[in-house]
Write a protein that binds this DNA or RNA. Structure first.
Length: 267
DNA sequence: ATGCCCCCGGTTCGGGGA
């Protein structure tokens, strides 16, 4: 049997790609992901720092928007079969979904999506039903993709805390859109389809956070949330060898409030 | 407790994030 090839896939909500260019280039250099999905670009597609990313050795598929949201897929290998925007939400003007196909040099195929799901707060506003509608459309797309029987990774900022062990103070968050039963059920429906939460495939530990608020000393107090997730189809999860949260990226001068999470797949 | 902090647009403040 030929030896498989290790592919590193990563997700990072950078909270403005222009403000985070230096740590972004550092992460590309140090972690050397093969594919990196970005969220919260906070710039139009034309303002994306494409030249710097290409100089670092990456192709970039970008779906930007002025001021808010914005997602991208960076890949060392060519990016094929791009889908821009979440199918089923064609009328949505918010840039929250990108999907593409990446083929390894040995012919391994990986379908990957960069997802920035809505926050949904406050829950008595239209933002909460919009969050749930997005998750419904995402679940429909996720089901479609399973029928392709490929290695698929749906990765990004889901803005959902799956479980009490994924938040520093569960009782304080029970009324929050990120932890409401409907939100958790929406995440669970993706799991029920057969997608695997990569981090939970390798660890049952509590306190494995990916986000710490800028306010109230959340980072030094480790008041974090696990809301950035790598969901893998069984074809991808069968090849999972490692998952890491790059907590070191929360240090430094102007960090994002999220840190990268990445996984190695032996494709 | 929705204020703390951070980012954006475009300006000395408001909206948004989570």
């Amino acid at each position: 049997m030929p030896q498989g090839i290790s592919v590193r896939i990563a997700s990072w909500n950078v909270n403005s790609v222009r403000q985070r260019l230096a740590p972004l280039l550092a992460f590309l250099r140090e972690a050397a992901p093969d594919v990196l999905c970005l969220q919260e670009l906070k710039c139009e597609t034309a303002a994306f720092p494409r030249a710097e990313i290409e100089d670092a050795g990456y192709n970039a598929l970008v779906h930007g928007q002025k001021t808010f949201n914005g997602v991208a897929i960076l890949s060392r290998r060519p990016i094929e079969e791009a889908v821009i925007g979440l199918p089923g939400m064609a009328e949505d003007v918010q840039s929250r979904y990108l999907e593409a196909l990446v083929t390894t040099e040995t012919g391994g195929v990986l379908r990957i999506a960069s997802i920035y799901a809505p926050n949904g707060n406050p829950v008595d506003s239209p933002k909460y039903p919009y969050k749930l509608a997005f998750m419904t459309a995402l679940t429909a797309r996720a089901a479609e993709l399973l029928r392709l029987e490929e290695a698929t990774a749906l990765i990004g900022d889901y803005n959902i805390i799956p479980d009490a062990r994924d938040v520093y103070d569960p009782p304080a968050w029970t009324q929050d859109a990120l932890f409401k039963p409907e939100s958790r059920a929406a995440f669970q429906r993706l799991i029920n389809l057969g997608y695997i939460d990569a981090l939970r495939a390798v660890s049952d530990d509590p306190g494995l956070y990916t986000f710490w608020d800028y306010q109230a000393g959340a980072w030094p107090k480790n008041n974090g949330l696990r809301i950035d997730h790598l969901l893998l189809s069984s074809r991808a999860a069968d090849r999972l060898v490692r998952v890491e949260i790059a907590k070191n990226m929360r240090d430094g001068e102007k960090p994002s409030d999220h840190v990268p999470i990445y996984a190695d797949l032996d494709l």
